[in-house]
Each structure stands twice: as structure tokens, then as C-alpha cells.
Design a protein around this nucleic acid. Sequence first.
DNA 1: CTAATTTGTAAACGGCCATGACGAAATAGT
DNA 2: ACTATTTCGTCATGGCCGTTTACAAATTAG
Lengths: 402, 402
Amino acid sequence: MTAPLHEARPPGAGRALPDTQQGMRRRNLARVLHAVSAEGSLSRAAVASRIGLTRAAVSTLVDELIRWGLLEELGPERPGRVGRPGSALAVSGRGPAGIGAEIGVDHLAVCAVDLRGVVRARAVRHGANRGRPAAPVVEELTELVRRVVAEAEREALWPAGLAVAVPGLVARDGRTVVRAPNLDWHDTDLGALLPDLWPLTVDNEANFGALAELWLGEGTPWDFLHVSAEIGIGAAVVVDGGLLRGTRGFAGELGHVPVRPDGPLCPCGGRGCLEQYAGEEAVLRAAGLEPREDLVGLLAECAEQGDESVRAALRDAGTALGIALTGAVNLLDPEAVVLGGALAGLSPWLLPSLETELTSRTAGPPCPVTVSRLGPEGPLLGAAHSVVRGVLDDPAVVAERS
Amino acid sequence: MTAPLHEARPPGAGRALPDTQQGMRRRNLARVLHAVSAEGSLSRAAVASRIGLTRAAVSTLVDELIRWGLLEELGPERPGRVGRPGSALAVSGRGPAGIGAEIGVDHLAVCAVDLRGVVRARAVRHGANRGRPAAPVVEELTELVRRVVAEAEREALWPAGLAVAVPGLVARDGRTVVRAPNLDWHDTDLGALLPDLWPLTVDNEANFGALAELWLGEGTPWDFLHVSAEIGIGAAVVVDGGLLRGTRGFAGELGHVPVRPDGPLCPCGGRGCLEQYAGEEAVLRAAGLEPREDLVGLLAECAEQGDESVRAALRDAGTALGIALTGAVNLLDPEAVVLGGALAGLSPWLLPSLETELTSRTAGPPCPVTVSRLGPEGPLLGAAHSVVRGVLDDPAVVAERS
DNA sequence: CTAATTTGTAAACGGCCATGACGAAATAGT
DNA sequence: ACTATTTCGTCATGGCCGTTTACAAATTAG
């Protein structure tokens, strides 16, 4: 007789839907849709055995999802097994779409992703946004969104929501940019600047990048640490398939973890923060380079060509990252550390020293370090997919909205 | 139109009970019991409005809980309000009990806690266990458990489970002690040594201490970092009312967070780990004292009497703790840091330097540091209460077991 | 061509919560 | 003192939802 280790939260605590029959139905609709989505194509019977309901119950759930345009019937399967073949179900490619948008320092990007996870429309606009006021930037972004929405609608998709990734801290209300140093925005309510046509979510680009890694990465576990360096150095902590945001929404400030407690003063007030060793400016200074537009490309190019001072700078940055990550890994015991954003492109020169520090210092078994293959697309895709996940997690919302 | 920030896990992912009517009923039974337990005494109507069900539904749920001996009717309330007074319900003091046990380095302790959270029986046995083999220690513990169970049964309680707190790492199976350095136990399956009479859970004493703080602490938030120093320095991360255990169950190793990357070598393989500055041995060495039984008492006494070298040692330990905690706070953004275990008793001399480091270094708003008032009782109470929480979280288990 | 197997659906069933009504027990007003 | 009002707990009814059972359809094995 062994009881499980305690980890359950009180019942009903984190539950979105009330524990009533209708809530149960909503959750079961979501489970059916999730099952089909995860497998790509599944018969009713297969869904039933997978989620633990009977075929009859699944039938009625599927009927409803088809009526809402979320599932579609592909026709009979062609199996080698005995028995009547099932009728293949698939998530519809003509229904709700997630609109993702990204406000970068030197570009704007928007895309539409259908329920299947396929990017169906996109638009990009290059141009420096650093220091520009929010209103005109958001206006340009709105124009891109309108173009993408129009294109999506031509393919029989309708926007289920808009998610915007920004390079800065976002309040827990999911609308307000508290501060975005590289844009010089402060306490900017994007909800007020965007047309109120779609349900809106605004979040940090690092968070969306981590979610993209979680949902789209191959073999990405459910517990990992996603490290990216766009503005400063941000980490996202993914625990049990969910993002850890912190009480004030400030979790993941890896850039200000002390690496050398007596090191140089940091604008944050601390000393020897990681950013003083692995931040953009610090690496440039150590490498003896001038600031430029495409920093990552420049650094990678120099390192590629054997520039020893650049290589040394990146090596040192890797060492500092390794030290900071050791603390995080010892504290959280994640299944992996994933390097994303700019770090992904520089990983060949960062990884050796980083891994040396990390494996020699971690108390337990070593924590594998992997590199994101999503690259700079991560935040945009994560944003669009977060809308799609919203529909997948509670399909009934689309019925309420039409 | 604002959509919430994404944090939901896929539906059914962390769900213990299937989404069927019976599962719904079980969850609603738990919600009723939780509501009464949280308030101490509540009428059916009050429960109904609190959990969002109708009075009729709550009535049948309460009937069942009374039949199982988990709730009892206290009789009519005496309110000053108009209308028929409700009949007060309270969690029963005569039903299942949680048996908590603690294996310490120099003592064994067992207690029984009823559903109301009241300690109803206890037994302690002093004596050094350091280096003794597991079998005789567990045999002694079993004797204490039997005594406590007998006493509890005389008060019409029956043991719903046994939870054992140990000073070491426990495998995720909740039975096996992977290693307990201060006992010199390795890969010891306590489930095989204890009589198989009750559902068993074994866990780290730091984890149980943190859970005690979560459930019993006054004003303790749902997101905090619990730091304790019994063996080495352990931290427990509580997120959203649940314990973060890590993939291998090794989360919370605050003792091996690098504080000074070029510091002294640590047995773990790293350099300058927190334990090298704030660990038991390190503090003793810095204070110029000999190892003894009641170390905490000794240190507190010396500091109290004004021993400057001891005070300096504790000040330095506080500084190191502050540096390590800065990293953790920046990464997790908890609502508070709680000092428990031995650190609670030494907090007067640790806190000043600790808070200085922490507040000056954290990027965001300062994170309050509080001191646990549970003291050394924490792990034992947490263990017993974890069993009680198990019943509260799924009351239907008691029906299945009789 | 028949037996076996599997799928999807329909009808009957049972469990569970909501609704509405009612008696019981208190207060407030006259 | 008596009535109106309010609130509580319960009962009967109804609707929703998944399960059970049965059956027709579609395929393979022999």
C-alpha cells in the first residue's frame, strides 16, 4: 500500500469550469478535440478508447464538434485489420484561426495558424521601432493584422483571437506593457491601441518562445527551462506543461541572477548579474565590436571566421550562463535546458563552456542542454498557437461566439 | 475583449479522476468537505453558495459525508439574522486520522492528526540515529506508530495513512530513501521495513516542512520559497499551492547553488556552493566551535551572549543565503521567502545581512522574508497533515476502504 | 460464402444536478 | 400576540449526460 507523494492542489482550485454536467461536457469536448489533434487522424472508436469514454458518448461529442466546424470527417480508413473500418476524423482546416503578432525591435510580423497548427497566412514589415512611440507602431501592426485576417478569411478561416508578443515585461492583465526598454515603452495599454475586434492577449516574447518550444519542439519535455536572449537574458520556466509566471508576472529574470557577487554594478542595483557577462552589451564590449543592427549575425560571422577575441567573449558568456543555470537547475531539476532566441544561433561557441560549468557543478545527474530549432520564429508561432490552444482547451467558446 | 494569459495545461492532463458523473460527484464531495474544513463550521446553504451548487445538491452530498463519518451535525446555529437558522456542519473529530512520523538524526517522533487538524496523539523517542542501520530504527519507529495508533483508536479515530519524513532524498515512488547522508542510509525501501497496514508515503522533511507552512502557517501565500537547513540546505518551491518536485524529485537543492564561482570545492563537484558558506560545518568552522548535539541551540546561545566570531559567522552565512536567494527570487518571483527549520531559530542574526543582499540585488520589487513559527515541528505536522489532505481532497477513498 | 471482428448509432437506463414548491424556524413590523 | 417576511433544508420533477445493450454495416479470415 503506497500512497502518492503529495502534490495535488485543492480540488476546484485551478479549475476553469464549474463541476456541473455542462462543465463536464465542455471538458470532454476538449478531450476529444485534443486527442484527434494530437494524433492527426483518429476514428471515433480510437478516440473513445484513448480518453476512456464509450463509443456512444464520443459519437455525440464528435457530432457537436463537427457541427461547430472544428472537426471534419475524412471518410473511411483503409486498414489491414479485421472488422469494419473506422471513419477517420481530423481537425478542421477551415474554422477558427489563431492570429499571432510580434513587435520586434526592428520588425513587425503577423501570422495566422489554423487548428491543425499550419501557418496559413503571414505578413512582415521591416523597419526599426526602437524609440518610436507606441501608437504609430501599433497602427502599422494593425494594418498587417488586417491583411493577414483578410487572407485567412479568403481561406474560410475566422480569427478566434489575437496574441501579441512584445520584447518587454507585460502585466498579468495580458494587455499592458509595463516596460519594454528596447522600444522605450512604459505602461502602454495595447488593448486601447488595437481595434477591439478579437480577444486579445499580450505577453513577453520569451514566454511565447517557450510555449512554442513546448508545443512545437520535437521531443521537448513537459518540464524545462527555456533561455533566450533578445532584450537582456530571459528564461521561461515550464513546469508540468504550463508556464510559471510568478506572483507579479516577473518570473524568469535569469539575467539578474548573481554570477559573481562582487562583480560590476548592474543597472538593476545588484552586482555581477549574469547580464554583465552574457548580455548583449557585455559580449560586444568583451569582443571589441561596435553595436550594429544584426548583432547575432555579426557575432556568429566573426566567430565562424576564427576571430579569437569574439570566440573568447562567447566562451566567457557561456561560462557565466553555465554558472547561472547551475543555480536554476539545482533549484528546479528540469528535464532539460533549451537555448532559444539569439542564443540558439550562437550555441556552437557558447555550449562547450556552458556545459562544462553546468555538468561539473550540478549536484544531481547532469541536465541535458539542447538548442531550439525554431529560432527567431518561436515567439510569433507561440503567440498564434496560444490562441489555437485556447480553442483546443475549451472548444465550447466558439459556439458561444457565433 | 481580453483573453487570459496562457497558463492552462491540456484538459485531463493533471486530472486524477475521469470526467464522468461519478468523478464529478467525487470532486463535489471534496469541495463540500474542503469548504466546511476551511471555515470550521458552515451550514448547508452557506456551503452551497460558496461552491456554486444548489442547496439540494449540497444536501445529498452532506448526507453522504455524514454517513461516512467525515462530517457531523452540530445543531442549529444561533444567528442574529432573519430566517430559519442553518444547521451547523463541522468536520468530524471521530473518523480518519493522519499518522505522521519523523526520522530525525537524534530523535523519532510520531503523531496523529484528525480531520480537523488537531493533534490527538503523539509519541517521541530521543536517541542518536546517526549511522545506525535502517532496520532497527524503523522497528523502533513502528513501535511508536503502534502506540500512537492505539491511542488514536481509543478516541474513535482510525488511521487513514502513514507519512514518514526523513532527512534525505526520497525517490518519486514515495517509499525509497535514495540517500540520507546524516543517517548513512542508501537506497533503503522503507515500505519493506514497515508493516503493510496503512497507505504509506515517504518524503523529504524539507518538503513536509514546506507543506506544513503552506497549510498551517498564518498568512502564508500560495507561492513561496521555503528554506530550511537540517541536512545541508534545502529549499522547497511552492507554486500555486503545490510542491514543485522536479523531474527526478531533486528540486530544491538550494545548498548547491553557486554563490562564489571560484570559491572552495564542494563534495558535490562544484565550487563555492551555498553550503560552503551557510552550511552547518562551514558556520561552525567560521565561528571556531566544535561539533555538538544541539548545534542550533549552541549557536543561538553564543550569538545571544555577544560572541562576535559567532555573530560574524552567522552574518556571513546570511549574506551567502541572500545571494543564493536572489537568484531564486529573480527566477521564480515568489510572494515570499520563508525561513524554516534551524534557520528560523537563528533568524535574528541571519536576517539583517540576508535581507540587505536580497533587496539590493533583486531586479523587481523586494520579496518579503518571513520566519516560520512552526519551528522544528514543521516536518512532523506536515507529514500527518498530508494524509489528512489526501482524505480532504478525495473523501470517497474512505468509503472504498471500509 | 459464412463466421468473426470491429465500427458507428439508436434506445433504454441510471446517476446527478437544477428547478420549483413546501414546511420549518427564525426575525420584523403592527 | 399575531402576521408577514426571510432563510433553511428537503422532496418531487425534469433535463442533461455517459453507460449499457442491441443491432446494422463493413471488413477480414477461412
